[in-house]
Design a protein around this nucleic acid. Sequence first.
DNA 1: CTTGGGTGTTCGGCAATCGCAAACACCGAG
DNA 2: CTCGGTGTTTGCGATTGCCGAACACCCAAG
Lengths: 323, 323
Amino acid sequence: MDYDFSDIRAYIQVVENGGINAAASRLNVSKSQLSARVARLESELHVKLLHRSPRGVALTDAGQRFYEHMRDVLARMQQAVDDVSGEESGQIVGSLRIAAPMTFGTAYLGPLLYAFMREHPALDLSLDLDDRYVDILSGGYDLGVRIGRLYDSSLMARRIAASRRVLVCSPEYAQRNGVPETIEDIRQHDCICYGSASVAPYWQFVPQEEGEAPRQIVVRGRVHLNNGESMRDAAIAGLGIAALPMFIAAPALRDHKLIELLPESPLTADTIYAVYPQTRYVSRAVRALIDTLVADFEHTPPWERDNLRGKPNTIGSIDVKSR
Amino acid sequence: MDYDFSDIRAYIQVVENGGINAAASRLNVSKSQLSARVARLESELHVKLLHRSPRGVALTDAGQRFYEHMRDVLARMQQAVDDVSGEESGQIVGSLRIAAPMTFGTAYLGPLLYAFMREHPALDLSLDLDDRYVDILSGGYDLGVRIGRLYDSSLMARRIAASRRVLVCSPEYAQRNGVPETIEDIRQHDCICYGSASVAPYWQFVPQEEGEAPRQIVVRGRVHLNNGESMRDAAIAGLGIAALPMFIAAPALRDHKLIELLPESPLTADTIYAVYPQTRYVSRAVRALIDTLVADFEHTPPWERDNLRGKPNTIGSIDVKSR
DNA sequence: CTTGGGTGTTCGGCAATCGCAAACACCGAG
DNA sequence: CTCGGTGTTTGCGATTGCCGAACACCCAAG
């Protein structure tokens, strides 16, 4: 286990620069040194790592694997250093790769992240927004945001907020078609559904009494979309009633482009989670960011903070029952 | 990122030997060297790792974490070296930590492992036998054996064998109480059940016709045990009918201490899996061992081989030559 | 067929670095 | 107060690492 780590670093540089000469000039060291280092490393490992030819070097199979292994080790080492350094000053150093759904990411996670980064100037951050399912582990992410159910037991999860969902339609639609007075009335309406048309769409409401099973109704979907913002736009366009997460619907509600229906019969809420790989050591950056997320979102998330709750849902001449 | 790795190794040695002096004498280097190395490391990390006093050294908080991180890194590095070295000669070097259930482990896994180790002399191995659920990930295992259902989605799994189960009782019991002619008849008998008495025990048989649901019967349990070998012994003692994995029942069947009942109505079979953590690189040792397991067990596992239905509890010898 | 420019490898000599041992500073137990 | 145990500092010696030039090699272009 007593390999000269400089040899390993030299090898990595040779690989990444595609040759001994290139690496030597880039690092301002002599090529003889690099040549010797790689040779020594090979003799210690009893494996040829590079095929040498006058045309350059090519990785052997073992060389390729060893290189990738060592990239891993180096990254792991960097984590260790990050974790430990800046300990005294309390500042957080390192890097953070985050995956989150589009809408939530742009609207709410982003702003919070930028504030977080201002607080921690030595922290690098990369945010990947994608509505598809992303594999946190194999994607090499440090943190992910999941809305709804958790499928992946191999991740740690922390609840960061409830995502209340609301029934909405456009004022124009309400004027034209009337509004449902009861849950059952919804069956008479066109609904904007999430997902493909092949699965029967149903909406689920919180039970009237504590302990009862949630009430479900199967709705008739004219439009099926797999994107929350598209659903919101379809609702604004008057295509029907949609069940939208509050964090998507909130701005449109505030601008009276959408109105809330059946507010006394709330839909069951989703939960928003922060998920992260279960490793022996969770970096201080991840811990701190999760804490910030929870602190900001747990009780009253920003999309619930608007002043739209108190306003009468009165649009034009139509009085839509509120309460 | 360009820390002198010797400094880190020195630090680790100091920590593990509990002091600079002790480490120095154990490594046959001067204490001045160690002192300087640790000091330099600290200055590079901008963190105090050790509290020095004339009474010895004590780890700071950061020092503790850094030490543990580096243990991790070193282990990871050793894996890399193991993976790559011995590549040419085809031999496998490294170490392997395995977890498996008691009975399966002693009777069938053990013998195979010892043969495997003879094939790979440069391989270290540790086998933990435990019937309780062991967490492969947090336990730091490289490989585990699971029988029945898989609960942990964070592990990779490979099917290594079917575990046929059989209904058995002692000849004496059969003489005394008669034998069931149909599945329904079982209800008239005393049964030896797995698990606690609080859950209704049921046995499940493969359906008569392809595509049907399995037939289940709830049995009456006089004896409840949570260990396969105890169940076998109880059955031998004539306490009733038991549903046992073939790999437990086989020797007793061969010695006519148990007889098989309703052989034309087989119980649904379990599956035996090899499970291992999903890391970017699965070590060659793990891959090779799984391949060996599959090769030996997949088609006709030893407990289904007539000539081996004797004494699988005698470790070693027999099974080895049958390879 | 020759030659030039690009590989990576080898060699000799210089010197910086590393490492040791001894001396030093410190503190608590006896 | 002294002794025995820490870890730290210092000065000197030489091993080690390093560089640059010369070398060997091969392909491609002329």
